[in-house]
Design a protein around this nucleic acid. Structure first.
Lengths: 180, 180
DNA sequence: ACCTGAACACCGTTCAAGT
DNA sequence: ACCTGAACACCGTTCAAGT
């Protein structure tokens, strides 16, 4: 369908994403578009050529975290103890270290299942479903727990972290609840 | 200290609060200051004379809900079953019906204990402490549960509701966790 | 004292002109 | 095709002028 983009366009896109990742990670939502453009060494118009609006850039800058979390999940959430518990703890750590990810999650448009085919988010959703099934098969997770439940709780976790709340305590209050 | 304000000033203040309550309750955070001024029949400058900034108005417009919730709590959260469970359910219903209250809670500046003496929020905090003590005395609440925990969970509940999530399910996932 | 609303500041987004 | 950045739109907040 679409023809290959020009080399300078691709390079500019990468620069914008890199600048956005660094700035959003550190200061979250209170970074302005002109500042990102300046840090990337391009004009604002170029940012808008590659991303339709601010929200799209926030999501694009967070995308790699979903892939990273998926890697972690595949490696560490299918053992002898609760995979979901490990999952929530790891997501909490990542969210706490990247305020841009909390911004992406807090304003997520889609419900579970609405991701485009093959996106990092969709692959992550699949692993979460597998963790749930694995924990349930081991009899350590309530049988009615769904992917939507995990999304709901990750959203809550994200907003706790964003507000500077004690998210470890939040997970403690939640923990054994998910056990049978 | 301060002398009595002029009658028209007091009337204008009341009009602003009334307009803000109605508009925030229905549409939450996406209501602009000029619109509130117009609905109140005053100039924007008058709004700013009575409230230092938008956030202060959001909080002032939500204040009465804290008193209402306190009334409910005193009447219904000291019975035979879990007072905290009734409390969370009621707060959820109020939050779901008043998006202005979610806006006030989601951007709350203070931690528990930081309220001014005698404010509605402080009185509410006291009742929450009493509910906790009552539930703990009846042996139906974990002994390490604090007022800060309840704040943490109400904040999480508020953000779930604000994002249009299934808050009843959220409370279900949380429910028995708080039991001993 | 208090009120009004035009004006200012700020930031997301667009678009005419340039390469 | 893509880039630039001045200009526009929008909204929170201020302040000079009025009562």
């Amino acid at each position: 369908m679409s023809t290959k983009p020009r080399a300078d366009a691709e390079r500019n896109r990468a620069r914008v994403i890199d600048a956005a990742r660094a700035l959003f990670a550190e200061r979250g939502d209170d970074v302005q578009m002109p500042e990102i453009a300046r840090a990337a060494g391009v004009g604002v118009g170029t940012v808008y050529r590659h991303f339709p609006d601010r929200q799209a850039l926030v999501e694009a800058a967070a995308e790699h975290r979903f892939a990273e979390i998926e890697q972690y999940a595949r490696a560490h959430c299918f053992g002898e103890d609760s995979g979901l518990e490990r999952y929530f703890r790891h997501v909490g750590e990542v969210l706490a270290s990247d305020r841009g990810l909390t911004a992406a999650i807090d304003s997520a448009r889609g419900r579970p299942g609405s991701e485009p085919r093959g996106s990092a988010r969709e692959r992550l959703e699949i692993v979460v479903a597998e963790i749930i099934a694995h924990d349930q098969a081991a009899g350590r997770l309530r049988s009615d727990c769904t992917v939507a439940d995990v999304y709901l709780l990750v959203g809550a976790l994200s907003s706790v972290i964003r507000k500077g709340g004690d998210w470890v305590r939040f997970l403690d209050l939640l923990r054994d609840q998910l056990s049978t």
